[in-house]
C-alpha cells in the first residue's frame, strides 16, 4: 500500500512539475511588466545639454549630497544616470503630468522607479521616457538595478513630490 501511494504521489508530482515546466513561455509573458516607457536615440553630449538647460532654468538653489535639486514645470524633464548618481534631483507637484526622460552617459545602468512603474535598462546612446503623474506627496525612490561598479548599491535618488 505504501509503495502504491509512493508511486501515485511520484506520478502526480512529476505531472505537476511537467505542466509547470511546459507553461514556461506563459510565465514569461505573465511576469513581463507593462512597457510604459519608450526609447529614442540621443548622444550623451546632447542629453547633457538638455539636462544643463533644465537645471539652469529651474534649480531651487538647494542640493542633496552635492546633486542640485530642480523644480521644473509640467512637461518634459530630464535626468542623467551615471556612476553612481542620478542628477539632478527632481521636485515634482501632485496632480501634474511629467514626461521623464532618462539616459545613461557612461555605462549600462538599470532604472527602477516604482512611481513611474519603470524597470528597464539604460544603455548609453538611448534615452528612455516614462510618464509620471504623482498623486500623493512624499519621497519616491529611483535606483540603479543593474550592477555598475563597487558603489552600485549607493546609486539611488529620492524624487520629492510636493502637495
Amino acid at each position: 500500500m505504501a509503495s502504491f501511494l509512493d508511486r501515485l504521489a511520484a506520478v502526480v508530482f512529476a505531472s505537476a512539475a511537467l505542466a509547470l515546466f511546459a507553461a514556461m513561455p506563459i510565465w514569461h509573458r505573465v511576469a513581463e511588466s507593462p512597457e510604459a516607457e519608450s526609447r529614442q536615440t540621443i548622444s550623451a553630449r546632447d542629453f547633457s545639454t538638455l539636462v544643463e538647460a533644465m537645471t539652469k532654468a529651474h534649480a531651487t538653489g538647494e542640493a542633496e549630497g552635492g546633486v542640485p535639486i530642480v523644480h521644473p514645470p509640467a512637461g518634459d524633464v530630464y535626468v542623467i544616470a551615471r556612476r553612481f548618481e542620478f542628477t539632478p534631483i527632481l521636485q515634482l507637484d501632485v496632480g501634474r503630468t511629467y514626461r521623464l526622460h532618462i539616459a545613461s552617459t557612461d555605462v549600462v545602468h538599470g532604472f527602477n522607479f516604482p512611481l513611474g512603474k519603470a524597470e528597464t535598462l539604460l544603455v548609453p546612446g538611448w534615452a528612455t521616457t516614462v510618464t509620471v503623474t504623482p498623486t500623493h506627496p512624499g519621497l519616491y525612490a529611483m535606483q540603479c538595478s543593474e550592477y555598475c561598479g563597487l558603489s552600485h548599491s549607493r546609486m539611488k535618488a529620492r524624487v520629492r513630490v510636493m502637495p
Partner: peptide, 30 residues
C-alpha cells in the same frame, strides 16, 4: 518521502534547469 517520490523531486530539479542554456540563444545576454 518514498523512493519514487524522492526520485521525482530530484528529477524535477534537473528538468527546470535544462532550458537555461537555451536562454542564451533566445535572449540577448545583455
Amino acid at each position: 518521502l518514498g523512493p519514487w517520490l524522492s526520485a521525482a523531486v530530484a528529477g524535477s530539479l534537473v528538468l527546470f534547469v535544462l532550458p537555461a542554456p537555451v536562454f542564451y540563444a533566445l535572449f540577448d545576454v545583455l
